[in-house]
Computed example of a mutant assay.
Amino acid sequence: MKPWQVKGWVIPPTANGQFVAAMEEVLDVYKRPYARKYPVVCMDESPKQLIRETRMPVKMRSGQSARSDFEYERCGVCNIFMVNEPLVGKRHVKITDRKTKLDWAELIREIADDLYPKAAKITLVMDNLSTHKPGALYEAFPPAEAKRIWDRFDFVYTPKHGSWLNMAEIELNVLTKQCLNRRIDNMETIKEEVRVWQSSRNGKKSVINWRFTTKDARIKLKRLYPTILG
């Protein structure tokens, strides 16, 4: 199954020039060879609902799977920021209370100064959300600092309805399945388990083998390309 065929990942039903232009830009970025000074990094975010059991779950035993009661208590929501560099199998996960523009701006500063301090230019692929704009840097930092951080990046946005083109979304799905696919009622537990998962997966240098190219897109998603009338 291909990424764009997964339930919940939507593609425009008809020809859309803006979509294919943004898609081909992302696919061109993914073709670049590894360069330490010019890393290609993907970023995505996802909410995680904090849920407390109201009745003691039944643990798994021979011949019977684990069981949880349908009733539960909502304990709020936290946000998961995923930053990954697919070509080297490196990822960084940050858990926050919220996902505001200021939270995003602080993450961008961390990417520039803590994760890639020696990079000449960081290409950052991300969804085109209202919070993911350079203006957020100016709301979070003094003008000179905001411009310094912004100049470290080349922002590349996936098209609307094209989040499947963001490899950080794939990494988030792996995190959910391997680490967070159960009820957890507090951020401290999530942070600790994510820290362990991150360390293990980085240690294995687990990479994403992206094979979908512009050539593939022009064949398999031909209906999205506008017809040229001569």
Score class of each variant (00 low, 15 high):
residue 2 K to D: 15
residue 5 Q to D: 10
residue 7 K to L: 11
residue 8 G to R: 06
residue 9 W to V: 12
residue 10 V to R: 15
residue 15 A to Y: 05
residue 17 G to V: 10
residue 18 Q to F: 04
residue 22 A to C: 06
residue 23 M to T: 15
residue 27 L to T: 11
residue 30 Y to M: 09
residue 30 Y to E: 09
residue 34 Y to P: 07
residue 34 Y to L: 15
residue 38 Y to V: 04
residue 46 S to I: 06
residue 51 I to V: 14
residue 54 T to P: 02
residue 55 R to S: 07
residue 55 R to A: 07
residue 55 R to W: 01
residue 56 M to I: 13
residue 57 P to S: 08
residue 58 V to D: 06
residue 60 M to Q: 10
residue 60 M to I: 05
residue 63 G to N: 11
residue 63 G to I: 09
residue 65 S to D: 10
residue 66 A to M: 12
residue 69 D to G: 13
residue 75 C to K: 13
residue 76 G to Q: 06
residue 82 M to H: 02
residue 91 R to F: 02
residue 92 H to E: 04
residue 92 H to S: 03
residue 92 H to P: 00
residue 95 I to M: 02
residue 98 R to G: 03
residue 101 K to W: 09
residue 103 D to C: 05
residue 103 D to R: 06
residue 106 E to F: 04
residue 110 E to D: 10
residue 111 I to L: 02
residue 111 I to M: 00
residue 112 A to D: 08
residue 114 D to R: 06
residue 121 K to I: 10
residue 126 M to H: 09
residue 129 L to A: 11
residue 130 S to C: 13
residue 134 P to C: 06
residue 136 A to P: 03
residue 139 E to K: 12
residue 140 A to I: 12
residue 141 F to A: 10
residue 141 F to C: 07
residue 144 A to P: 03
residue 145 E to A: 13
residue 146 A to V: 11
residue 146 A to I: 09
residue 150 W to Q: 14
residue 150 W to D: 13
residue 153 F to M: 01
residue 153 F to E: 04
residue 154 D to L: 09
residue 156 V to I: 11
residue 166 N to P: 04
residue 167 M to E: 12
residue 170 I to H: 00
residue 175 L to A: 00
residue 176 T to L: 00
residue 181 N to G: 11
residue 185 D to M: 00
residue 187 M to E: 14
residue 189 T to Q: 10
residue 191 K to P: 01
residue 191 K to D: 02
residue 192 E to N: 11
residue 196 V to M: 01
residue 197 W to D: 00
residue 200 S to H: 01
residue 205 K to C: 06
residue 206 S to T: 13
residue 207 V to I: 14
residue 208 I to V: 15
residue 216 D to S: 14
residue 218 R to F: 05
residue 219 I to Q: 14
residue 220 K to W: 10
residue 223 R to T: 15
residue 228 I to L: 14
